[in-house]
Design a protein around this nucleic acid. Sequence first.
DNA 1: CCTCCACAGGAAGCGCAGGAGT
DNA 2: ACTCCTGCGCTTCCTGTGGAGG
Length: 419
Amino acid sequence: MSNGRTYDKYVSRGNIFLEIRHLMKGYDSMTIDEILHRDIEIGNYMDILSRAMNGNTPDNIFVYGQTGIGKSMVTKMVTSQLEADAHKYNINVKTAYINCEAVHTNTGVLKRINSRMLPKSILHKTMNSFDAHFLVFCDIINKFDGIPIIIFDEVDKLSNPDILNIFARIKENDFTDKNICIIGVTNDLKFVEKLDSRTRSVLSKSTIVFSPYTAIQLSDILNQRAKIAFRNNCLSEAVIPLCSAFAAQEHGDARKALDLLRVSGEIAEREGVIVVEEIHVRKAKEHLELDEVKEVIRTLPLQTKLVLASCVYCTSEGASKVLTRDIYNTYKRFSYSTGFETLTQRRVTDLLSMLDMFGIIITEIAHKGRYGRTKEISLNMPHDVTLAVLLDDSALTPLKDIALQKKQAECSLQAFSTI
DNA sequence: CCTCCACAGGAAGCGCAGGAGT
DNA sequence: ACTCCTGCGCTTCCTGTGGAGG
């Protein structure tokens, strides 16, 4: 017996992609020669790092640029190429790559560097402080016969950037007998300004700025990947230029462009067609934008979710715009029924401003004369989507009953009005 | 023209949590 | 294991706002 819930309908699918992984995030199994439109940046990088080929430590480098424009990929490529080329001339270059988003405390960073520089590095169990790890690090560097390079990707995420100063002055302060080359990668253009002047002067000896990709450059990158990711004749002519144009509008982000192309293909595949068309790109754009906001909502703190739930509740009561007062009254009810502490109205206005900043709600100051100044608030997201994401949080489960009761009330009201 | 409403939002300070130092 | 430091979330207190209504 079949109830229609079988996998049969999926059999005919899979006609579009050849190897989807070439469009996936983090896919970088290319060679340095295959990287497109980063010739200037790669050239600058190689000029600075080339000193290592004569056995000298290169200057520290700071790399800037928006997200998705190839900073990390190029950095990894040029340093691994340097390791390989130096090896041919019996020069030892060793690179430790640290993503400061994943490891941001000083001790954590040192631990990671030590394990990269010397995988078998050991630390006495009773010693777990920064100093202990630092001593191990100095020991590794002193015994290492070559040029150490440490890459701090997303360096602005370091909880204490002073650690950069320690590395930069390690020889000057007699901790080791050799210098270290430090590469800091960031998309925060003001990061260097936040550093103290000593750290700044040592670290930003050389600077490489990555410029955003243009729409034409993005087209080239997409074409390069599409050739290996899609089957022949599966993309209509307009698809790649449109993906590139959309991504170019958003700071020339290649990651966005690739996502757009991949999701367009997935949507087309789901629809059971064999050619990706312009309409699929537009649907993919909407889908990705909605996904981004949904992710923001999912990661909001609980109190902010409660405030947002109040906005959803109030604006679904027929009024497209509601006032701060209404939101706050509903919020008080919600916080009571979920058992959370009730924040002050002052704090709630801050949370509303934050939701406005995220683009989840729209707020407008309304001067109502004698009736005071307030904010008019409307939801900038579909009600059902927002509610579904909010109710995914188990802490907000009690609100499910309120939403259900409301829905029932609306149905009975509708039934009443149709009589 | 002045008053008043109902907040918005800045400033200062408190308490807590997590990381660093000892 | 303890203390210190720092950042963050939050509160309280306060001033500013601009148009309706007297």
